[in-house]
Nucleic acid binder design. Structure first.
Lengths: 151, 151
DNA sequence: TCAAGCCATGGACGCCATCGACCTGCGCCT
DNA sequence: AGGCGCAGGTCGATGGCGTCCATGGCTTGA
């Protein structure tokens, strides 16, 4: 993981569909060299995936909300997590420090669906209560930040 | 925006580097047809970008936190937003319903950097107070959910 | 019913991904 | 100190792919 790898990562975070030839031009290496470097970054798990980022409204997911989960005292966190994992509406799931053990980002089509999702989460064994905040608008999302050499 | 477009979007959200030929095979069309459809989805703004998803720790961004912002009564929301926008550590920014006007997802290298970021946000004119929660671990992030026909 | 426009098809061409062979610089072992 | 081995690079070739174009069918609207 040197400066060129970081540069490749930044380029791919900006446009994951760049050709190897294009990447090679940008970093001043040959295309096969870039190909090998990117391949190693992929198998090392540094690059997890390449995703198209889509306007959520256009695919019927116009409602975004953040949900905090407070667990029962004595709840099995793994069970709660497993229950959350099978809900496709949960886009992101962070395990947090603080009263609320989990913070979820969820995406649904309508407020009615959000209501159903909240009910389902509240019914999950181990969940004591939830706190939901609805996003009125998304100013930006997943904005890439230049990487740094890890100390 | 028909069923095939949705299918293409789902495929590209799963792997943004699929070749057009591969996409064409999956949806049962010719490569040029797929090329044209994807091009239209891009110019229509449905597909916003193609991004490589990276393990944050490996690029020196091991600390993730969520920050809620409460604005001063009478604060100019646009000014606050403009101030937030120039902070590269803020990965996502949602304008929320509720007491906290903004919910941020931030990514920094160390707790010390997080502290500095919080101070900077609190000093921003229009910001009354903030509430920060640190993510101990990320269970998953940006998990794509199959799109639906928009009603 | 007819016309027009949109979209998929298939072919052609040039670029790109990818493989193999060779080279070079560095670290290590003798 | 010198030689060996390896990691990682360039170069060249080839096969597949992206991309443009002309053609033809289907659907829509008058």
């Amino acid at each position: 993981m040197d400066a060129i790898d970081l540069r490749l990562i930044d380029l791919l975070r900006d446009n994951a569909r760049s050709s190897y030839a294009e990447l090679a031009r940008q970093v001043g290496l040959s295309a096969p060299a870039v190909h090998e470097r990117v391949g190693k970054l992929e198998t090392a798990g540094t690059i997890r995936a390449y995703r198209a980022e889509v306007e959520p409204e256009t695919i019927g997911l116009g409602v975004t909300a953040l949900i905090g989960i407070i667990e029962d005292s004595g709840a099995d966190t793994d069970d709660v997590l497993a229950a959350l994992r099978v809900m496709p509406e949960i886009e992101s799931c962070h395990f947090m420090a603080g009263v609320e053990s989990y913070q979820l980002t969820v995406r649904v089509g309508t407020i009615a669906e959000l209501e159903q999702l909240i009910v389902r989460i509240n019914r999950t064994p181990g969940v004591a209560s939830t706190r939901t905040a609805i996003a009125l608008s998304t100013k930006w999302e997943n904005r890439p930040q230049p990487g740094r050499e890890v100390a």
